[in-house]
């Protein structure tokens, strides 16, 4: 599977990573190589195979629907690059 530069730019946008022209060129080659390499999976007939959802058979535990944590706003914002009181600050999103 070959990806072109436009595709690289499209997925980079989806992944929210800015790429330079040079990076886009390199990624075009690298991603194409990796996607071509994984194409060999097409040889395997998986028509009647269920996808693996869990490696060890067990039923998922559910906890009681009760508040078990919280009241730690200081901890939550402790590492934020920009805060105001107990809020994260981001660039303006609404005009």
């Amino acid at each position: 599977m070959k990806v072109d530069e436009a595709t690289v730019r499209h997925i980079a946008r989806l992944a929210r990573i800015k790429v330079t022209d040079e990076e886009a060129k390199n990624l075009e080659t690298e991603l194409s190589a990796i996607l071509t390499w994984v194409e060999q999976l097409g040889e395997v007939d998986t028509r009647n195979v269920a996808p693996l959802t869990s490696v060890v058979q067990m039923s998922m535990k559910k906890r009681e629907d009760q508040v078990s944590d919280g009241d730690c706003a200081d901890d939550i914002i402790a590492n934020a690059p920009e805060v105001a009181d107990h809020f994260f600050v981001v660039p303006k999103v609404v005009e």
């Binding site: 990806v3 997925i11 989806l14 990573i17 990076e23 990624l27 690298e30 991603l31 990796i34 996607l35």
Partner: peptide, 10 residues
């Protein structure tokens, strides 16, 4: 890391 994020996103 970028390479893998992009492969994953694709």
């Amino acid at each position: 890391v970028k390479r893998r994020i992009l492969i994953g996103t694709y």
